[in-house]
Nucleic acid binder design. Structure first.
Length: 310
DNA sequence: AACCAGGTGAGGA
DNA sequence: TCCTCACATGGT
């Protein structure tokens, strides 16, 4: 049965949102964006200011999708807050309606553990392999889909079987975080209730003197907080961002830090943990409480060359 | 054939 | 705290 989401004049661009590198499981099939959510399958299509969708289960309803795409938040107001310069302004114009989402934290966590030192197509491939091998079968409109595997399933998977999903050296990190989460040593659903600093500390810093999650550094933690925990003030720094900052925002940094950014982009050296904190901190203060939105627009813009009109 | 890709952990100065 | 290196793999 086909149903609709009413956007009520809220800006939303489904395609840009799902294709901006924040989520890795959506596929465009016959004009419909399709994915597995919470043990069900949903397909979505945008028709102007309304969103048509249908799903395999009752629970996958409009309310859930509105929350997932964060449609009840005032994007125009967020635009007004982050419009600090011509660079974000042009990116917003180009990708108008791109939204940050509220993904499942577990899936997001695993995705960004996997996302180290690789590219987006292969992240999608590895996540897909993981689901094919360890997910539960779901049939929808005569097509078989797979759910994202639960923490305990990946915790009990052999290192060899994880490696066979093409994870490479990431296999042991995936297993490690799965063990922590399935053993309830980390509570991902609680991240939303903590402020940015505490949530980030929970993911990567020392808690009671010992490391919580192997395979989660600063960048991965920022992505997880931004894409699944609603921490809009997170500002992840990857090589793309370093490139953008060195090129368009050098005036925000000391000369030494600009050199560090350039060296990082040129692969001559890595950012230290302290560099990362300084750089991310500067950008968080510059853009404010929704800095993560600015980051996502700048990131998406940097990854899509040739679309510049000016 | 090198080189790159939404980085991170380990080891040593 | 900083620097260097290894890390698996698929695509150019």
């Amino acid at each position: 049965m086909e149903m609709y989401l009413d956007l009520l004049d809220e800006p939303f661009d489904l395609g840009h949102t799902l294709d901006s590198g924040q989520v890795f499981r959506w596929e465009l099939r016959n004009g419909w964006w399709t994915a597995v959510m919470r043990e069900g399958v949903v397909r979505v299509k945008q028709q102007g200011q309304s969103i048509a969708f249908s799903s395999s289960s009752e629970g996958l309803d409009a309310k859930l999708l509105r929350r997932y795409f964060r449609l009840d938040e005032n994007l125009v107001r967020i635009y007004a807050e982050i419009t600090k310069d011509e660079h974000v302004t042009s990116a917003i114009q180009r990708y108008y309606g791109l939204r940050l989402m509220r993904q499942d934290p577990w899936e997001c966590l695993v995705s960004f553990v996997i996302a180290t030192n690789t590219n987006i197509p292969r992240i999608k491939l590895m996540v897909s392999n993981l689901c094919s091998r360890f997910g539960r079968k779901i049939e929808f409109e005569s097509v078989e889909y797979k759910s994202f595997p639960e923490p305990d399933v990946l915790a009990e998977a052999s290192l060899e079987s994880l490696t066979q999903c093409g994870l490479g050296y990431r296999a042991r990190f995936v297993k490690a975080v799965a063990e922590k989460v399935s053993a309830r040593q980390v509570f991902l659903d609680e991240l939303s209730f903590l402020d940015y600093e505490r949530a980030k500390a929970t993911l990567i810093e020392e808690v009671l003197g010992r490391k919580t999650l192997l395979g989660i550094g600063r960048k991965a933690a920022d992505c997880i907080l931004l894409f699944s925990a609603g921490k809009d003030d997170a500002f992840p720094i990857d090589v793309w961002m370093a490139s953008v900052l060195a090129r368009y925002y050098p005036s925000l940094f000391e000369e030494r830090m600009v050199q560090r950014l350039q060296a990082h982009v040129a692969k001559k050296s890595r950012l230290t943990a302290k560099d990362y904190d300084v750089i991310s901190g500067v950008m968080r203060r510059y853009f404010g409480g929704h800095a993560g939105y600015a980051q996502q627009y700048l990131f998406h813009d940097a990854r899509n060359p040739g679309r510049h009109t000016s």
